[in-house]
Amino acid sequence: MYARPAAATTAALLGVSALILPTASAHAAEHDEPLVIAHRGASAYAPENTLAAVDRAADMGFRWVENDVQRTKDGELVVIHDDNLKRTTNVEEVFPDRAPWKVADFTTAEIARLDAGSWFGPEYAGARVPTLKQYMNRVSHNHQKLVLEIKKPELYPGIEQQTLRVLRNEGWLDRTHVSSKLVIQSFSAQSVQTVHALRPDIKTGFLGTPATADLPKYAEFADQINATHTSISADYVSAIHALKGPHGKPLEIFTWTVDTAANTRRAAGFGVDGIITNTPDVVRRAVAED
Rank of each mutant, 00 (worst) to 15 (best):
M136H: 06
R4L: 12
G208I: 11
E289C: 13
I253D: 06
A239D: 03
A6E: 14
L21P: 00
T50H: 09
K244P: 03
A38I: 08
A242T: 02
K86L: 12
G15N: 10
L173Y: 01
T212G: 10
K86P: 02
P47N: 07
R266S: 11
A26H: 15
A57G: 04
K73Q: 09
G205T: 12
A6H: 02
M1W: 11
G171K: 08
Q70T: 13
D281F: 11
V94S: 00
W172H: 08
I150G: 02
V139Y: 04
T204R: 02
R165E: 12
P157F: 03
L251D: 08
L51V: 03
G41K: 13
A267G: 05
R63L: 15
V79Q: 05
V147C: 06
P250M: 04
D74T: 03
Q162S: 10
D273A: 15
Q161F: 11
I225D: 03
E93C: 01
T209P: 01
T260C: 05
A99C: 12
G15F: 09
A104R: 14
V69W: 01
D290E: 05
R40H: 07
E160N: 09
P280C: 06
A28I: 03
P200Y: 00
I20P: 07
A104P: 05
A268S: 13
W119T: 15
G61N: 14
D105E: 10
H81R: 06
V287C: 07
K133S: 14
G208W: 04
L155T: 04
K151T: 08
P246M: 00
T9P: 02
T72Y: 01
K145A: 14
T230Q: 13
T257A: 09
G245Q: 07
V54M: 04
M1C: 07
S118G: 01
A219F: 07
R87Y: 04
E30R: 15
I150Q: 02
G126L: 05
I159D: 00
G248T: 06
Y45K: 12
G205P: 06
I232G: 05
A29L: 14
E48A: 15
D214K: 10
A189Q: 11
E149D: 12
F221I: 08
L243D: 15
A6C: 13
W172L: 09
A261D: 04
F254S: 11
D97V: 14
T230N: 09
R4M: 13
G269C: 04
K217M: 08
A44H: 11
T255N: 11
S233L: 07
F254I: 11
V192W: 13
A8Y: 02
I20L: 15
W256P: 15
L243E: 10
Q193G: 14
V147R: 12
